[in-house]
Design a protein around this nucleic acid. Structure first.
Lengths: 213, 213, 213, 213
DNA sequence: AATGAATGAGCGTTCATTCAT
DNA sequence: CATGAATGAACGCTCATTCAT
């Protein structure tokens, strides 16, 4: 009773706490099944307080998506500027980074919701596309196009090459998120990334000296 | 009273009609947003009738998933038995078939829901895994393993190769389903499949004569 | 417990019962303070049932207004057709009828709400105007104009005469509804009507023989 | 911190400013729909500050009513003491004054709320009755009774005569407030007052010389 | 078997009120 | 005095589920 300060007076911290709690609840139950009561309770605030910072459940979800996206966007930007590395090296690094982020953060959980709710909240899918998927794809695309110009990569649509690179990363992650929890045989993520990059490089490069031992 | 003919369909057809209607509604709105009223109306039955055949909304959804899976399972089985074709030929055919099915049926839409609701309905994800994903993966895996034994494919984990093959198909499909409706630049699905198979073959095969022109 | 049949199956009667209950509750508490729970309870139905017949609280209120207006509209129409009576006789009858209706029905209570909520629900005020106030005013206006043409009533704007006739009726009624419940000295409604009609006739008629004893 | 001058008004002015703001908001939205946030914002104070001066929303509304009534009470008193004017002249002046006040101030808007909320706040209706309606009615009643004693006005209940005089003023005003905003044909207020007074005088006076030209 | 009126628990949202600062 | 973040009870509305017919 007495150990529960009713008013904490730290407005600035609240939205973040609420978003964190909401992230967990959304990740656990999806958008529709998530209850604001649960989010409020987990955030340690009253339900009404949520509305001091977010105008609706949907708005809160948007914030969650944006927030969970932010660090990834930063990562993507950093990757974009690490362009001085060798093409082959980058090809080996990037999917690994991608995978690390997916697993380290709740991005994957949010991504699943965005996928499931894409028809109900197209704006979120758009946000996701603009901030995460497309930039990341563009980076790969740019690298590949450059490598083609310098004669190291075979002809072919660079954007499709990028999709080819990213696809198994995504599938591996979804497997990890969806199938492994229900008892399916795991897909070793690191091995998958390594083998995929090797295979893709062999399929894309004109001169295989670099990757042949 | 007497002016209402009511051509009663043979009763056995009812569940099927309901499932069909439910498939459409679930595909359009997702699980939580789908309303039984809409499903009943689309199926041309009363809302109460749904409960004559399905014990709950979840049960109905399970049936929808199972039903929409069925033809794919069949397709998978057929693929499995067409094993007399050449490895390269199969590699070119299978992803194409996969893509066709995804686009021709509502499977993809259901898959999106299963992804989004996987935490809420793990049993469905399991069903999906057992009936669709795993068999399909196994077929690819088996083919690749066989090709490795016959010395045509490089060493490497065959199951991972299968994931590498399927990943871009799924990513391309999700892009088609989620990103294109919101105005993103389309990914040409056929081109993607073709280029991916070519790249993967080049990366996997020991002897490249077959695919070099 | 056992005397409470859960399902009564008489859809046609329900809306009427709900409207009646709503009329009472709205009359008691006004629009905003009326709770759907109370209306449902008074109508002997569940809260959800209200939404089988009315799409919203506002819609229900509209129905209440319309319903409580209906008999008055009929009365107005009847009055309009009883035009064969003598002008003086009608002048004595009409306000009396008006007063009777106000007191016999809940119209007055509804009118009060319409007045109070006119800014929030202009559509209702419009409905009230079109269906009740204006027709009634038109009848008076027509009668007076006719009497002017036949040389029995002095010159003057007939519509204003009608307002002059109706005003005290309304004021007397509002007094009865608002002031008397809180202990104000009553205004004897019948006496008011009688005296007002006599005064107005004396003020309007050219030949006073009829009303002078 | 220091760059926030905050010209503090003398604190005594605060309640008045809040009441003014509240008057506007109540007039615009009615009691239930009025939000304390809006009132606070319009008054330029914080929401909590309202509670330094008023114990509840109802209390604030009471203050608004009292305050908006005050000048009218004064006006009524002044009228009461201007009794040296001629009866006919007063009859012509008073309704005009009444009408002016209704239109010039927000009294009418408040009156509408009092009417609509009379069941919820009987105390307010009582206040309104004691401070405004009854005094005003008493003045009319007294004047008429005096005129009867001096043999200038016909027999009849003087209080009812007063109601007869005030009724159309009120009806005309409500029409102006409620019906005209929704597109109803206006009732010319000045003309109404003039014609009503003429008619009433003709109906009440024994000797018509004064008003016959 | 089939209906569809009825249910009622549940949830998102609002807002008057409180109180630590 | 004044603030405004925080509260929490309340309410309108939804919809999966039930059951008398």
């Amino acid at each position: 009773m007495i150990d529960k300060p009713k008013f904490r007076r730290r407005k600035d911290a609240r939205p973040g706490e609420i978003i964190e709690a909401a992230l967990d609840v959304f990740a656990d139950h999806g958008f529709a099944q998530a209850r604001l009561d649960d989010i409020a309770e987990r955030a340690g605030v009253s339900k009404g307080s949520i509305y001091l910072h977010f105008s609706s459940k949907e708005d809160l979800f948007r914030a969650v998506v944006t927030k969970s996206i932010a660090p990834n966007v930063a990562m993507v930007r950093d990757l974009a500027h690490s362009g001085d590395a060798d093409f082959v090296q980058l090809m080996e690094m990037l999917p690994r980074l991608l995978g690390q982020v997916l697993k380290a953060s709740q991005v994957g959980a949010v991504a699943k919701i965005v996928i499931g709710e894409s028809r109900n909240f197209p704006a979120l899918a758009l946000h996701w596309h603009n901030e995460v998927v497309n930039p990341m794809l563009s980076i790969f695309t740019g690298l590949i196009a450059a490598a083609q110009h310098s004669g190291r990569v075979r002809s072919g649509e660079p954007r499709l090459f990028a999709v080819q690179l990213a696809g198994p990363v995504m599938l591996g992650f979804l497997w990890h998120e969806i199938m492994e929890p229900i008892g399916a045989e795991p897909i070793p993520f690191e091995d998958l990334l390594h083998q995929h990059v090797q295979t893709m490089l062999r399929g894309m490069l004109i001169n295989l000296d670099k990757i042949d031992e």
